[in-house]
Design a protein around this nucleic acid. Structure first.
Lengths: 111, 111
DNA sequence: TGAACATATGAACAGATGTGCATATGTTTG
DNA sequence: CAAACATATGCACATCTGTTCATATGTTCA
């Protein structure tokens, strides 16, 4: 038999809803995409201007392939979008939601 | 010889500052801590009320040890703090910065 | 003090993740 | 069409990470 829920705090959580797996997964998927230094640098760079893959690789001093892989992760998390112009693909942040989230986190990290 | 920086966008990034390793590391450390479903659930639960380790373990249906390890990660990222009351340690979110960040991310994830 | 309870920590292991290399796909231009 | 350039993708591998088990540390109370 399960342990009994025995206090007010747990009752409150039961009523307001224990965190659901799907919900938590969605949220952590976003954070997972931003939880890596290279991808953070990409996002910070794109917060200033849109950039092609090679430009990002040049700025961050990494291989084109490495950057392309990371951009895929960021695309999957709907953090960046790429638009093709001829041979190049210009990447930019999806919206400035992202920038606002980063601003808050930077504030938090600087305390 | 390095490739020449050859366009306006890159010049702008150079002036405004290419993303620094330390800065990116700090930011990604925060995101890394939130980028895992179990820890997200802990944070969501703590956003409603403070909880002891065993209470969290019960709610999330996980081992005490597992939760304790995750709480260490969250402590290290200064997302939660624990305060001891007798035998128990009550955990809570450090500030409501965290909740605001989560609200924004949830909005982003729900689009 | 010793038993019972709550939490923390170290070791070990399976599974996930970041990166570079080689190569494929897509696009332009001669 | 072929060559040159930009980007994407599969593979392989080293590293990192989440979880459990066993045990240590901390606290209360009889």
């Amino acid at each position: 038999m399960d342990k009994q829920i025995h206090n007010r705090k747990l009752e409150q959580l039961i009523t307001n809803g224990v965190p659901e797996d799907d919900h938590a997964k969605k949220i952590s998927d976003f954070f997972k995409a931003t939880g890596e230094p290279t991808r953070v640098k990409i996002i910070l760079a794109l917060s200033q201007t849109s950039l092609s893959v090679n430009e990002i690789a040049e700025i961050l001093n990494m291989s084109q392939s490495g950057i392309s892989h990371q951009l895929k992760t960021l695309r999957d998390a709907r953090i960046v979008v790429g638009e093709r112009f001829g041979k190049e693909v210009h990447y930019r942040l999806v919206d400035n939601h992202i920038v606002r989230i980063f601003e808050q986190v930077i504030k938090h990290a600087d305390e």
